[in-house]
Every structure is written in C-alpha cells, then in structure tokens.
Nucleic acid binder design. Sequence first.
DNA 1: GTGGTCTAGACCACT
DNA 2: GTGGTCTAGACCACG
Lengths: 129, 129, 129, 129
Amino acid sequence: MPFQFDTARPLYIQLAELLTRRIAAGDWPPGARLPSVRELAADMGVNPNTMQRALAELERAGLVHAERTAGRFVTEDAGCIAATRTRLAAAHVRAFAAEMAALGYTRAELLAALTELPDPIQPEEEPHG
Amino acid sequence: MPFQFDTARPLYIQLAELLTRRIAAGDWPPGARLPSVRELAADMGVNPNTMQRALAELERAGLVHAERTAGRFVTEDAGCIAATRTRLAAAHVRAFAAEMAALGYTRAELLAALTELPDPIQPEEEPHG
Amino acid sequence: MPFQFDTARPLYIQLAELLTRRIAAGDWPPGARLPSVRELAADMGVNPNTMQRALAELERAGLVHAERTAGRFVTEDAGCIAATRTRLAAAHVRAFAAEMAALGYTRAELLAALTELPDPIQPEEEPHG
Amino acid sequence: MPFQFDTARPLYIQLAELLTRRIAAGDWPPGARLPSVRELAADMGVNPNTMQRALAELERAGLVHAERTAGRFVTEDAGCIAATRTRLAAAHVRAFAAEMAALGYTRAELLAALTELPDPIQPEEEPHG
DNA sequence: GTGGTCTAGACCACT
DNA sequence: GTGGTCTAGACCACG
C-alpha cells in the first residue's frame, strides 16, 4: 500500500497517551494520587468507562497502580517514568528529524531553526496546504 | 474544552497535504508536469474523484495550475514553493519544540538529542503515549 | 446451559468446607475440643454468626457434636472421619483426572507428572486460564 | 488474613480461561477460525462486549489473533499452545498434589487412587461437608 | 466515596 | 457479515 491513511485512533488510546505524557512530564509526580476515574472522565468530557479503559492501559504499562478503594497512584518507580519520558522524547526527535529531512533540511539548518526559537512556545494549528 | 481529540481528517485533505509536502521537498521541481489524476489516484489506491479534490486544494493554494489539455504543472514561482517549504518546516519546528518543552526538555537538551541522531533516518513505530 | 459460571458461594459454606477439610486432615483429632465459636470467628476474621452457621453444618454431617456447656467436640467415630477424608479425596481425584483428561493427558502422563513432583509442595499463583 | 474467601472472579476472566483451556485441549486446532464474537457470546449466554473482552485477553496472550474482517484465528504457533497446555496441566498437578497432601495422602496413595480410576471420566459436583 | 464489572445498544470501517 | 469502539446506566465490594 503506497499510502497509509490517518484513521482516527481509538479515544481510549488517545487518552492513555495524554495521561502518559502528563506523567512523563511530571504533572503528577511519582506516588501522587490521580483524580478519580469519574473526575478525569468529566474533565475530558468522556464516558467513565472509556477513561477506565485508558487507565487500564497505563496500569498494564506499570505507570500507575490502583489501590482498591483509595484511588489510583502514579508509580513510585522514578526510573520507569524517566524511561517513558526518554522514550517519548526519542520518538518525537526521530519523527521531527524525519519530517525535516523529507523537506530537505540538513541537520545544521534544523539546529539553527531551533536555536532561533523564542522560549515560551505556544502551539499553532498545522496548515495543510 | 480542555482536550481536543484526534478526529480522522477527510481523505482529500490528507492527500493534499501529502502532495504539498512532496512539492515543497522538490520531488516535483518548479514547472514540472504532474502525473495525471488517474495515475496519481491509482498510485495511492484512491478514487480519482478524491484525488481531483485534493489537487483542487493545491490549485487554490497556487502551488499547481492546470493547463486545459496538457495536464497539471507545478508552479514556476520558486518563491511560493520555498515559502511553503518554510511554512511547513516552521510548523514542524514549533510543534516539536512545544512537545519537547511539555516533557520538560530544555533547548540545550533538545539540540543535544538532535546532534546525536544518525543522519540517515529510518522510521520507527510510534511507541504508546 | 453449556457453561456454568463460578458464582461466589455463601461464606458459611466455604467455612464449613474448610473446617471439614481440617478435621479430615487430622488437624483436630477425634474427640478433640474445638476452639470456641468466637475464637474461630476471630481467627478467620468472620462474624460469629457466620461461624455458628458453618459449625451447624458440621453437626448436621455428624462430624462434630456440641456438649451443652463444655463446647464442641470432633466426633469420636474415626470411621466417619475416615469416610469424609476418603470422600473428599475421591472428589479431588475425579476432578483432577477430568481436568487432565480434558487437556488430553493420558493416565500414564498424569502419573508421570505426579511422580516428578517434589514432595514438599508450595502453592503457586494460578496462571491465567 | 488467615482465610481467603472465594470471591467470584470476573466473568470475562472465566470466559478467557475457558477458551484458553479449549484451545490448549485442541478443541480448536492451530490456525482454526474461532466462531464470531457474537456467536460465542450467544452460545455462552453473555453480552458480546464481555466476550470481546475475554477474547482480547487471549489476544494479549498471543493465543489468537484477529483478522479485521475475516474473524479470529487460533495462533499457528503450536509451541505457544503446547506451552499453555503444559502450564495449565502443571498448575492442576500442583493444586491437586497440595490438596491431597493436606488430607494426609502420600504420593504412593495418590498414584494408587489414580491408577484405580475408570478411564471414561464424568464429573461429579464437589460435596462440601 | 473508590475502582471494577456487566449489559444493552449504537455506530464505524472493511469486504 | 466481521471485529472494534463508545456511551449510558446499572450493580458490586470495600472502607
């Protein structure tokens, strides 16, 4: 197949990714209690079941663990979190480098562009054409 | 809304983006004749109507123009192509910088990671998160 | 119904089974005085009423008898205890044989597996499936 | 805690175990197509979603794989199936040996009891007292 | 209140 | 028709 379509990924996967990113970023430090399933679901405007499924993914990955009645907690294993952060960063780096290379940018230009960047960064929607 | 879901974008938009990227990358140089709609559609495994719509987007953006019977041609305006390339690159740079900043990477670490990267880049499956 | 779910059985039944097993195993020899209902209930972390009901089951089965003020005693009828032990063992044997047969094990393989087993047996978490 | 209650395990786990057992037993040979989710769900009298979840467990274990529109298939990896069968059998053997040891049976008696067993085995409900 | 399970019913993409 | 996802709403055990 010469071209792969962007099919929308499952919502629970996107939620799992978002939560993973936030834990990797330190939004919730190791050992911290996460908001309840219902709370997170309400915050994101999704069904609690969907959020539960997303959190089950994090649990499978060892990033969080559930205490029956007390809630869910970020793992105390800082190494696991650090590894996740590194993994995510590496993926971004590779993807970015690949995209820029496809546009014919050399590594030097790429570094220059990043150096010129203002430090407080706000997102911009991706133009398509 | 505190979180925006990835919704699958229309196919013709995805195709337009792909073609734009290829023109910006120089796959088809300024003034070059593009393959026919049918040919492109067949290559991508897509309905010719969809490909037609994608190409209409490129025309709207001024990147290609149709000559009645001779086919479609990439614009001769190298500045327009260069601007497109710069615009795409800038968007990638900003997005990348924002993602890395969210993970707590400083600009220095970011530059270091890119410097360490091997030059021929091969894709890697996106890890979860 | 082609498949019967494991439904959690009443607690007093589970306790009765446990006590029966212990008497059959000789933990309390024939004629021995059982700990008081309160004591047993405390040991198992169970409401004394529930334990009372469990013991009533043992009385019904003739394995223990209550002496008005002196407490409950294991039956002196060694034959009854032996029969219980035999009955439990037979049930285990049949169930085990059936499970192994369902997995396609011949009696010879089954005997081989048991022969290879180390004699002091420590429990192992039940693997999935 | 000196005594662990039988809490009914989740239905989807029980279903996963049953299906695993059937695959290990060769009811569905390697590469065979499983009945559809809806069919299996109807057969067992459960909700299709519950059955789906059970099958997802088998998928995680590598015992089956889903072909988008064609159905689910047992893995072709006979080694994986054999390993599962061995694992299940070992668990049964250990549990059986432990139960019999608790009743004071020696290995010799245990082997004798199994040797005496009739070959076509039908199950018998476990008596409790 | 917490996490967890189950059901019912809908919708989607793919062939 | 297939697998897969999502929602809505219920129920449970545990404190």
